[in-house]
Design a protein around this nucleic acid. Sequence first.
DNA 1: TAGGAAAGTTAGATTAGTCTAACTTATGTA
DNA 2: TACATAAGTTAGACTAATCTAACTTTCCTA
Lengths: 142, 142
Amino acid sequence: MEITSCMEDYLEAVLILKERNKVARVKDLSALLQVKTPTVNSALKCLTDKGLIEHEHYGYIDLTVLGEKIAKDIFCKHQALTHFLEKILGVDKKEAAKDACRMEHTIGVQTFTKLRKFVKFIEDKPNIIKGFNHGYIKRGTH
Amino acid sequence: MEITSCMEDYLEAVLILKERNKVARVKDLSALLQVKTPTVNSALKCLTDKGLIEHEHYGYIDLTVLGEKIAKDIFCKHQALTHFLEKILGVDKKEAAKDACRMEHTIGVQTFTKLRKFVKFIEDKPNIIKGFNHGYIKRGTH
DNA sequence: TAGGAAAGTTAGATTAGTCTAACTTATGTA
DNA sequence: TACATAAGTTAGACTAATCTAACTTTCCTA
């Protein structure tokens, strides 16, 4: 099944809202994704048709099993990318977040797997990149 | 001026074709970007209106100074990303190329700059990631 | 418990990027 | 050099994602 990066954003947003507020609503999706509520509605219709969410009329929004799988996949990519950009490259929080939000839709399985391994490799011995990203070791939380 | 990643692809393709064949034509853009020729035509109209290319009727396509600047910027990002994915992460050529083609439109200036520095840092002392990407040193061309 | 505000929905327009079908121009060779 | 074929263009339709305006439902509170 093919899904656009837009639709991936909606799935990810539902996941985030559910973790944050226990439930996801149209209004919150609208605020989080910075689109108007009718835009959310048409996205929800699309995702319902694809069997990725459940949405009761005038009610809450939930992920199906498959929808949650996709949402979590995107979210993991987002986190790995943010970590790499911020903690290894030293990109500032704001641009790291912005870039990660877009890159999360563009990296393939293999790239994701290897990136995660690479991050772990570097994290396990911080000295390895001493001299590149000054301040890294101090800034880190471990 | 804002430009979509689609339009960036067309600019980059013109640059590549000019380097490869000295000139760029509709048919070649169509083949390279895997779209039909009328699609190329409407993209060229859009880019001409924005002052990024020059296109003589039934003739060749060329980049303006600004168009070339944008094209080269994207191309550089593409190369840096390909290098990072292939040579540092060890992603295979095919997926590295595919991912780089999409990521080149999503990384910001700061991320690009830092990525390039990071690649150089690693390249200058290959042993630094010995143990992560086995075979890297042998496989490389330096 | 009735009414109004907040939330949600529907209808219909717009834009970007793509397509097919039909047409026009250019080119090379018989 | 005339004409067939290749290349390029135009017109018009479609889809995805967005919007505004107008409508409906829900729910809190006076």
